[in-house]
Lab assay of single mutants.
Amino acid sequence: LDITFHVDGKNIHVHGASEEVVRIIEELIKNNARAEEIKETLERLLR
Protein backbone atom coordinates (compact mmCIF):
# COMPACT_ATOMS: atom_id res chain seq x y z
CA LEU A 1 0.00 0.00 0.00
CA ASP A 2 1.39 3.36 -1.01
CA ILE A 3 0.01 6.37 0.83
CA THR A 4 1.48 9.81 0.37
CA PHE A 5 0.36 12.98 2.01
CA HIS A 6 1.65 16.50 2.24
CA VAL A 7 0.52 19.56 4.09
CA ASP A 8 0.22 22.71 2.01
CA GLY A 9 -0.56 25.54 4.38
CA LYS A 10 -3.79 24.34 5.99
CA ASN A 11 -4.67 21.95 3.17
CA ILE A 12 -3.89 18.29 3.61
CA HIS A 13 -3.58 16.21 0.45
CA VAL A 14 -3.72 12.44 0.85
CA HIS A 15 -3.29 10.03 -2.05
CA GLY A 16 -3.79 6.28 -2.21
CA ALA A 17 -5.96 5.92 0.89
CA SER A 18 -9.61 5.17 1.58
CA GLU A 19 -11.82 8.02 2.77
CA GLU A 20 -11.78 6.61 6.30
CA VAL A 21 -7.98 6.59 6.40
CA VAL A 22 -7.87 10.10 4.94
CA ARG A 23 -10.13 11.34 7.75
CA ILE A 24 -7.92 9.70 10.36
CA ILE A 25 -4.77 11.24 8.88
CA GLU A 26 -6.46 14.66 8.77
CA GLU A 27 -7.44 14.35 12.44
CA LEU A 28 -3.91 13.37 13.43
CA ILE A 29 -2.44 16.31 11.54
CA LYS A 30 -4.97 18.72 13.03
CA ASN A 31 -3.93 17.44 16.45
CA ASN A 32 -0.29 18.16 15.56
CA ALA A 33 0.75 14.51 15.54
CA ARG A 34 4.37 13.94 14.59
CA ALA A 35 5.06 12.12 11.32
CA GLU A 36 6.25 9.10 13.31
CA GLU A 37 2.94 8.92 15.21
CA ILE A 38 0.98 9.15 11.97
CA LYS A 39 3.10 6.39 10.43
CA GLU A 40 2.59 4.12 13.46
CA THR A 41 -1.17 4.72 13.41
CA LEU A 42 -1.37 3.91 9.71
CA GLU A 43 0.66 0.75 10.16
CA ARG A 44 -1.73 -0.40 12.91
CA LEU A 45 -4.78 0.35 10.75
CA LEU A 46 -3.41 -1.42 7.71
CA ARG A 47 -2.38 -4.67 9.39
Rank of each mutant, 00 (worst) to 15 (best):
L1K: 12
L1H: 12
D2I: 13
D2T: 11
D2F: 12
D2M: 12
I3D: 01
I3L: 11
T4K: 04
T4N: 08
T4H: 08
F5I: 09
F5E: 01
F5N: 01
H6V: 15
H6G: 06
H6C: 06
H6L: 13
H6N: 14
H6K: 11
H6R: 09
H6D: 09
V7Y: 09
V7E: 02
V7R: 01
V7W: 08
V7F: 11
V7D: 02
V7A: 04
D8R: 03
D8T: 02
G9I: 02
G9S: 03
G9M: 02
G9N: 06
G9F: 03
G9D: 06
K10T: 14
K10E: 15
K10V: 15
K10P: 03
N11A: 14
N11L: 14
N11Q: 15
I12P: 01
I12D: 00
H13L: 07
H13C: 05
H13R: 10
H13P: 04
V14M: 05
V14C: 03
V14G: 02
V14K: 01
V14Y: 07
H15K: 13
H15I: 13
H15P: 05
G16H: 08
G16K: 06
G16T: 06
G16C: 04
A17F: 05
A17S: 05
A17W: 04
A17Y: 03
S18F: 05
S18D: 08
S18I: 04
E19I: 13
E19H: 12
E19M: 14
E19S: 12
E19R: 13
E19F: 12
E19D: 12
E20G: 06
E20W: 10
E20C: 03
E20P: 03
E20R: 07
V21C: 04
V21Y: 03
V21S: 03
V22H: 05
V22L: 09
R23Y: 08
R23K: 12
I24H: 07
I24D: 01
I24W: 04
I24T: 09
I25W: 02
I25S: 00
I25L: 07
I25E: 00
I25Q: 00
E26L: 15
E26W: 14
E26H: 13
E27T: 11
E27I: 11
E27G: 10
E27S: 11
L28E: 00
L28D: 00
L28Q: 03
L28Y: 03
L28F: 04
I29H: 01
I29P: 00
I29V: 08
K30N: 07
N31D: 06
N31A: 10
N31Y: 07
N32S: 11
N32E: 07
N32P: 03
N32D: 11
N32V: 04
A33Y: 09
A33K: 09
A33N: 04
A33D: 02
R34V: 09
R34D: 13
R34C: 07
R34N: 13
R34P: 13
R34L: 09
R34W: 05
A35W: 15
A35T: 05
A35C: 10
A35Q: 06
E36Q: 11
E36N: 08
E36C: 03
E36I: 05
E37F: 12
E37P: 01
E37T: 10
E37Q: 11
I38Y: 02
I38N: 01
I38F: 03
I38M: 03
I38G: 00
I38K: 00
K39W: 15
K39M: 15
K39N: 12
K39C: 05
E40T: 10
E40Y: 08
T41K: 06
T41G: 02
T41S: 06
T41L: 08
L42H: 00
L42G: 00
L42F: 02
L42Y: 03
L42E: 00
E43K: 10
R44G: 06
R44W: 13
L45I: 09
L45W: 07
L45K: 00
L45E: 03
L46P: 00
L46I: 10
L46A: 04
R47W: 15
R47F: 15
R47L: 15
